[in-house]
Simulated assay, not measured.
Amino acid sequence: MALQTEIRNLLDCHVVGSDGQSIGKVGQVYLNDRTGEPEWVTVRTGFFGVKQTFVPLASARRSGEEIRVPYDRETIKGAPNIDVDGRLSLNEEADLYRYYGMQPEDVPRQRTGETRTRGPVTGEPQDPAAERRRGVAPEARGMSGETRGGVTDDGDIDMTRSEERLHIGKESRETGRVRLHKFVETETVRERIPLTHEEVVIEREPIRDGELAGTFEIGEEDRQMILHEERPVVSKETRPVERVHVHKQAVRHEETVEGQVRRERLEIDEEGLTRDDKRGPGRGGNLPPKR
Rank of each mutant, 00 (worst) to 15 (best):
G145R: 04
P232N: 03
H14V: 12
L166Y: 00
I268P: 00
E229Q: 07
R73L: 04
R165F: 01
R148G: 07
G135P: 03
R98A: 14
I168R: 02
T35P: 00
M102N: 11
L180F: 10
V50K: 07
G20N: 12
Q260V: 06
V200K: 13
P232Y: 04
E221Q: 08
E230M: 03
L88V: 07
R61A: 14
H14L: 08
E191Y: 08
E124R: 12
N286Q: 04
R192I: 05
P232I: 02
L273I: 11
V84D: 02
A94G: 08
E264Q: 00
Y99W: 14
F48L: 08
V184G: 03
E270Y: 11
R161A: 06
D85W: 10
H245I: 13
V234I: 06
G285Q: 01
H197I: 05
F183Y: 14
V244L: 06
T274N: 11
L88Y: 09
G101Y: 09
A140I: 04
E39G: 02
R177V: 08
V233I: 14
R111S: 10
A140Y: 09
K25N: 10
P38F: 08
P70K: 02
R275W: 11
E37P: 01
H253R: 01
S172D: 12
R118Y: 12
E146N: 05
Q28C: 09
E242T: 02
I268G: 00
Y30F: 11
F54L: 02
D72M: 02
T186E: 15
D19N: 11
T274L: 11
G155P: 02
I23Y: 10
L96H: 02
Y99N: 06
G135L: 06
P240Y: 05
R134L: 10
T238Q: 14
T196N: 09
D95P: 06
